[in-house]
Amino acid sequence: MWPSRSRTETVICTACGDQFTRSMAREYDKYGDRWDRKDKTFEYLCKPCHSDLCHHPRTDLEAILVEIGAGDTDEETFLSAYLETVEKRYGRLEEES
């Protein structure tokens, strides 16, 4: 039997933790490939949190985070390792004026 269309699916925003109806959320795929849906589980962001995201390409971001052990160190150690890794791969970061 098919699920009822009148049932409202709710999801939790991974950024703020609030619960929203699925229609008020945006799918988030940490690998950046939300179009390939085979064997995939999505996370969700509410529309305000999704709007706050940087929507530039994030090539290699997940690989860098895994490589430097994101989540396993304190913030200062993480930021230092991240900056060092990014500068080695892409050159020194410069602020725009």
Rank of each mutant, 00 (worst) to 15 (best):
Ile68Trp: 06
Phe20Gln: 04
Glu75Phe: 10
Cys49Arg: 01
Asp36Ile: 00
Ser23Met: 03
Lys30Leu: 00
Cys49Met: 03
Lys47Gln: 03
Ile68Asp: 02
Thr85Ile: 02
Val66Gly: 06
Met1Ile: 00
Glu95Ser: 13
Arg5Gln: 11
Asp52Gln: 14
Ser23Cys: 05
Glu75Arg: 15
Thr14Glu: 10
Arg37Met: 04
Ser80Gln: 10
Asp60Ser: 11
Asp36Gly: 05
Glu75Ser: 08
Thr41Ile: 10
His50Ser: 09
Ser80Glu: 06
Phe78Asp: 00
Pro48Asn: 04
Ser23Glu: 09
Arg7Ala: 13
Arg34Pro: 15
Glu27Ala: 13
Tyr28Gln: 10
Glu62Ala: 15
Ala63Arg: 15
Glu67Val: 02
Asp33Gln: 12
Thr14Asp: 09
Phe42Ala: 06
Met24Trp: 00
Arg37Thr: 11
Gly17Ser: 04
Asp39Leu: 08
Ser51Asn: 11
Tyr90Met: 01
His50Met: 07
Glu87Tyr: 05
Leu45Met: 02
Gly91His: 04
Asp29Thr: 07
Leu79Cys: 08
Ser51Asp: 10
Gly71Arg: 10
Lys88Gln: 12
Ile12Lys: 15
Tyr82Phe: 14
Lys30Tyr: 02
Ala15Val: 02
Asp52Asn: 12
Val66Arg: 15
Tyr31Ser: 11
Ala25Pro: 01
Asp52Cys: 07
Pro3Ala: 11
Glu95Val: 04
Ser97Trp: 03
Gly17Ala: 06
Gln19Trp: 01
Leu79Phe: 10
Gly32Trp: 04
Thr59Asp: 11
Tyr90Glu: 03
Asp29Gln: 05
Trp2Asn: 13
His56Arg: 15
Ala70Leu: 07
Trp35Ser: 12
Val86Phe: 02
Cys49His: 01
Gly91Thr: 05
Ser80His: 09
Phe42Asn: 02
Ile12His: 10
